[in-house]
Amino acid sequence: MSAVFERRLLTRDRGVGVFQKLWRIPWLFVLLLCAVAGVGYVALYSAGGGDPDLYANRHGLRFGFCLVMVLCLALVDVRLFARLAWLGYAAALGLLVLVALHGQVGGGAQRWIAIGPLQLQPSELMKIMLVLMLAAYFHRASWERMGNPFFLLPPLLLVLVPVGLIFKQPNLGTSLIVLALGGVMFWAAGVRWWKFAGVLGLMAAAAPILYANLRDYQRARITTFLDPESDPLGAGYNIIQSKIALGSGGIWGKGFLQGTQGHLNFLPEKETDFIFTMIAEEFGLVGALVTLALLLLVVAFCVLVALRCKHQFGRLLALGLGANWFLYVFVNVAMVTGGIPVGGVPLPLISHGGSAMLTTMLGFGLLLSVWVHRDLEFGVARD
């Protein structure tokens, strides 16, 4: 990047003040995030048996802190994030390596690391940093460079290295989501479709090797997905109870705090992975559809940001963040309804947990920065 371009990058838009940027923040989207978090508060209040101190209050406090962080990030010039993307990616990758060496074990997996009072899951942070890094890399690419395989090799490594580290934790679900995010970014940047066909062919050929290296419990999840009744008291228990709860809610639900599967502790992990099932049991099909509508409105806003943004970096970043949110929602809902094998993927801003909320809201801070600075001239550096 030339010095002239660098100076132009940093000096343009100096006349826009903080109050002008605050005016540009899409406050309706902020209210939408509050509504989604509010659904989470209500669901976690019920999951705690009516005790707000068990899950709900901590959820509210985390969201309040993260919302302040989002608004602060929205005021930061989005071009600064592009320049520091490599640093964020390197930090997330370093944390993944640290987890592999000294991470805390829970549920048979080594996925967490303690940073002060926070139990951080670096794989969640990597999702955001990978999207940011790929957006920063691809925003400078011309159509001709996108056709050069050597130009695509570095970003491919940027995707495959964290996928491998996450898979070894083991965390098959998150590693596949990170791989899918990388695919979305490559597609959005303009990679030719036949390259995707080649990669999918290689993945299909490697599937037997991947299956052979899965842990026993991961294989059991796949077997249970195909036939849950084959082990109703073991590997199939979770999904069977989830389906019972979903069906028993009917159209309007059993009522707030009246869900029998959840409150009689038949429904497993009702405050985290299976919280959507609890919502459906107590508020029925109507409550489930309203929740899904709120979640999909977030995706719609991400697409709107990408369409309205004038610079490639912002478009790629918005699409990647929207894809991350969509994959969260799709995998969780498909999992609890029996559409895919069960895996440990929470419902964003609704499930109990600090790492997913912190990293998700970090992504929304970047998204709002793109929106606030969507009209900037974010030029392409000349070689």
Rank of each mutant, 00 (worst) to 15 (best):
L317S: 02
A334G: 15
P232H: 07
H311T: 02
A245N: 07
H352W: 13
A334E: 01
W252F: 15
G338L: 06
K243A: 08
V18F: 14
F186C: 02
R58E: 10
L317Q: 02
S2F: 14
A135F: 07
G287V: 03
S46T: 09
M69N: 11
F378H: 15
L153P: 06
G164C: 10
Y211S: 01
G365D: 00
Y41T: 15
L71K: 03
R315H: 10
G15H: 09
F63D: 01
V299K: 03
L210C: 12
L307M: 09
I350V: 15
K310Y: 07
V76C: 10
P155N: 08
F313P: 02
A334K: 08
L10H: 12
K21I: 02
A74C: 08
G343L: 09
L296Q: 07
G17F: 06
A293T: 14
A206E: 07
M129K: 03
H373S: 03
L366I: 04
R192D: 14
L257C: 10
L87R: 11
P348I: 03
Q104S: 14
L292Q: 09
L120P: 02
A306M: 04
N324T: 12
F63E: 03
I222L: 13
K195N: 09
G103S: 08
L233A: 12
K21T: 04
A356Y: 05
L153Y: 14
G201E: 10
G314D: 02
L202G: 13
L87P: 08
A100F: 11
M146G: 05
R374T: 08
V336Y: 00
F186T: 00
I113H: 05
V30I: 15
L172E: 06
A92E: 02
V286Q: 01
Q169F: 04
I275E: 06
M69E: 09
N332S: 09
A212C: 11
S369Y: 03
R192M: 12
D231A: 01
L32S: 00
N324Y: 13
F151T: 07
A37V: 02
C66H: 08
R374H: 07
T11H: 11
G182Q: 04
L285W: 10
V345H: 04
R140C: 14
G247E: 06
A318G: 12
G379Q: 13
Q169Y: 07
G164Q: 10
G190P: 02
R12Y: 10
L267T: 06
E6V: 15
V331L: 05
A207F: 10
A288H: 01
L358Y: 11
S2N: 15
